[in-house]
Amino acid sequence: MLVNNAVLRESALPVLRAILTSAVAGICLAQEVMRSARSASAYAAAAVSRLQRGKGKPTEVFLRPLWPGGAQPKGLARQYEKLRSFWKHDAPVWTFWRNWNEDMLAGRPVDWDFLRQAVLLSDEDWKAGPERIADRIEELQTRIKL
Results as ranks from 00 to 15, higher is better:
Val93Ala: 09
Leu115Gln: 04
Val61Thr: 14
Lys88Asn: 05
Ser85His: 08
Arg116Cys: 08
Pro68Cys: 08
Ala71Met: 12
Ser49Thr: 14
Pro109Tyr: 06
Leu51Cys: 14
Val61Ser: 14
Ser85Ala: 14
Gln79Ser: 08
Ser49Gln: 13
Leu83Tyr: 10
Arg53Tyr: 13
Gly75Arg: 07
Arg108Val: 01
Arg132Gly: 04
Leu63Val: 04
Pro109Phe: 10
Pro73Cys: 09
Gly75Ala: 15
Gly107Arg: 02
Leu105Lys: 00
Trp126Arg: 05
Val110Gln: 03
Pro130Gln: 06
Ala106Thr: 01
Lys55Cys: 13
Val93Pro: 01
Ala71Phe: 10
Trp97Glu: 00
Thr95Phe: 03
Glu131Leu: 12
Asn99Arg: 03
Phe86His: 07
Trp94Thr: 10
Asp90Asn: 12
Leu76Met: 15
Leu66Asp: 05
Trp97Tyr: 04
Gly54Asn: 05
Leu121Gln: 07
Met104Gln: 07
Arg53His: 14
Asp111Asn: 15
Trp94Phe: 15
Leu120Val: 03
Arg98Pro: 00
Glu124Leu: 09
Arg116Thr: 14
Leu120Ala: 02
Leu76Gln: 12
Lys82Asp: 10
Asp90Ser: 09
Lys57Pro: 04
Arg84Tyr: 02
Arg116Ile: 04
Gly129Lys: 10
Asp113Tyr: 01
Asp90Val: 07
Pro130Asp: 10
Asp125Gly: 01
Trp97Pro: 00
Lys55Val: 15
Val110Lys: 00
Ser49Met: 09
Glu81Thr: 13
Ala118His: 00
Gly129Asp: 08
Leu120Pro: 00
Asp113Arg: 05
Pro65Glu: 04
Asn99Ser: 04
Leu66Ile: 07
Asp103Trp: 00
Ala91Val: 00
Pro73Met: 09
Lys57Ala: 12
Leu105Thr: 02
Arg116Gln: 08
Leu51Asn: 11
Thr59Trp: 14
Tyr80Cys: 09
Ala77Met: 07
Val110Arg: 01
Lys57Ser: 11
Gln117Met: 03
Lys55Phe: 15
Glu102Ala: 02
Lys82Asn: 09
Leu105Asp: 01
Trp126Tyr: 15
Asp123Pro: 11
Asp111Arg: 11
Lys55Leu: 15
Asn99Ala: 04
Gln79Ile: 10
Pro109Gly: 05
Asp111Ser: 06
Ala71Ser: 12
Leu51Asp: 08
Trp67His: 10
Asp113Ser: 06
Arg98Gly: 01
Pro130Val: 09
Lys127Val: 06
